[in-house]
Amino acid sequence: MGHVTRRRGRPTVYVAGSLFLDIVMCGLEHAPRPGEEQWIGGSGVMPGGVANQAVACARLGLNSAVITYLGQDRPGSWVREMLADELVDMSYAEYTPHQNITVSLVMEGDRALTTHGKDEVPIPRDDLPAPDVFLVSLPYLVRAQDRIAQWRAQGTIVIADAGWDATGEWPREHLEALAAADVFVPNCSEAMHYTRTLTIPEAAEALTSFVPTVVVTCGAQGVHIAQRSAGSPTAVVVPALEVDAIDTTGAGDAFSAGLATGLATGAPLTDAVHLGQCAAAWTVCRIGGSSAAPHMGELGEWVAQDPQIDALAGQSVRNIQAKLDSVTAL
Rank of each mutant, 00 (worst) to 15 (best):
R8V: 12
D85K: 13
I23G: 12
L87P: 04
S256H: 14
A254E: 03
C188P: 01
P201Q: 05
S18N: 11
S104T: 13
V15F: 05
G48Y: 09
S290Y: 04
E94D: 03
E36D: 15
W78F: 13
Y194P: 03
W170G: 07
D132K: 08
V284R: 08
P129D: 05
I200P: 08
H30W: 13
L198T: 15
P47E: 07
A51P: 14
Y95I: 01
V15M: 04
P186L: 01
H174I: 02
A112D: 12
Q277Y: 08
R80N: 05
P124M: 00
R33C: 14
A144C: 01
E176W: 02
V13K: 08
S290I: 07
I23A: 14
H30C: 09
E190V: 06
G258S: 04
R111S: 09
E242V: 09
E298P: 09
D89K: 09
R125W: 00
I148K: 01
E242P: 02
G168L: 05
A181W: 02
T208L: 09
V238N: 01
G155S: 11
V236S: 06
V45S: 11
V216P: 10
L207W: 05
T328H: 14
A235G: 04
W151K: 06
I157P: 06
A251Y: 07
P268K: 08
T270Y: 11
S232Q: 15
R286K: 15
L259A: 08
A179M: 00
A257H: 12
Q227H: 06
P34H: 08
T265P: 09
M192Y: 03
I40G: 08
Y140T: 02
G42F: 02
T102P: 03
S316W: 13
L62E: 03
A144G: 00
P34S: 11
S316L: 12
V237C: 10
E242N: 07
A206D: 08
H274Y: 13
S64Y: 09
G250A: 01
A272E: 12
I148W: 01
T265H: 04
R152T: 09
P294L: 12
Q154V: 02
L299S: 10
A292C: 13
P124K: 00
V303R: 10
G71M: 06
Q227K: 14
G48C: 10
A177K: 02
P47A: 06
L62C: 04
Q99E: 14
I225H: 01
G288H: 08
T249R: 06
V88R: 03
H3K: 14
C218Q: 10
H98Y: 05
D161T: 09
A58G: 12
H274T: 02
T195F: 06
P32F: 12
D271S: 15
A181D: 00
G27L: 10
P34M: 05
A65R: 15
A54R: 09
H98G: 02
P307D: 15
Q53I: 08
Q308W: 09
V136E: 03
Q277D: 07
P294N: 07
L28N: 13
I287S: 04
M82S: 07
E108Q: 15
H224R: 10
P11Q: 11
Q99P: 13
L21S: 13
